[in-house]
């Protein structure tokens, strides 16, 4: 079993864990965190596929560049999704705080 296959198995396990958390955990912030974990595990799988596609030229290992590019794009997209989700969660918390007790000032950053 090549090292990259072990990483593939580890990624499959993390995907299972994070999917469970995404579905079961009711708190939105923990869901976003689980999403990030899920995304990184999927990208590890991409990495494993890239490493299998690559090889070793005069001792220096290399991986298939196309999945690497896809992973970098995916990471940036995942980050954008996280930012949007976190901003939405904070705005939701503020809106919820405003509806529950109108008196206290529910500023989001103080």
């Amino acid at each position: 079993m090549v090292a990259s296959t072990w990483f593939g198995l580890g990624a499959a396990l993390i995907i299972g864990l994070s999917l469970f958390q995404v579905i079961i955990n009711p708190e939105p912030l923990r869901k976003v965190l689980a999403f990030n974990l899920l995304g990184s595990a999927v990208f590890v799988l991409f990495g494993v596929l890239a490493r299998r596609g690559g090889g070793r030229i005069d001792g220096v290992a290399f991986a298939d560049p196309v999945p690497q590019a896809l992973i970098i794009t995916g990471l940036v997209v995942a980050f954008a999704a996280t930012v949007l989700a976190v901003a939405l969660v904070l705005r939701l918390l503020q809106a919820e705080c405003a509806t529950q007790d109108h008196d206290t000032e529910c500023r989001i950053d103080d």
Binding site: V44, A50, R51, G54, A63, I71
Partner: peptide, 10 residues
Amino acid sequence: LAAVDVALTE
């Protein structure tokens, strides 16, 4: 996994 670019981004 010999993906240094991705390591930096990650």
